[in-house]
Amino acid sequence: MAKFKLKYFFLFCAIGVLLSACVSDLDFTQGEDFAISPTLDASLIYFEETASSFIDEAGAEQIMVRDSVNMEIFNDSFTVDNLIKAAFLFKVSNSINRGFQAQIDFLDETDGLQHRFTLSIAASPTNEEILVEHLETFENESLLALKRSVQIVITVSLMPSSDGSIINENTPGILTFKSKATFYLLIDTST
């Protein structure tokens, strides 16, 4: 009988050891604080053109070039929820003896203007490269404007020359335009 009792004693001790596992000092609610903040870079618009690109088919100066880019991604719910800052960097270099102006408009779904900025680059009489950099940062109000935008319109205008000269096939110089966007995201589970 003593042996029988001992058997059960051992049995319960062993089961006790195996079932005594505990998970302590854990706090899974911490998962609610989950947040990551990746920063993404994306190429935007570029071109590299000689002076002769600003001549139309009839041989006259083309004083304005314009096109639009659909950017529905700003309006996407993921972007709207998680984008906390954006910065657009532009670099323009000019060796043409004419000034240029680039105007960048952000339009909403009803073509309403949400945001606008302008870059100007001076003429280069000696055909030396002139550099202009512009950083457009979207925060607070301007960030909200960006998130309402679905279209970017770029207008490059040829400024009148100071000496009345007109661009022809042989006008030297190059206008280059580079741009990229940096998106600062904060993806968290608290909101």
């Binding site: 190429s43 071109f47 053109e49 690109s53 070039v65 314009r66 880019v69």
Partner: peptide, 18 residues
């Protein structure tokens, strides 16, 4: 391989419209 877009002065292949 993506460098961005060139909407203003498209290197239009023959007959390619905007």
């Amino acid at each position: 391989s993506y460098e961005g877009i060139n909407p203003l002065f498209q290197e239009t292949e023959e007959g390619q419209t905007a």
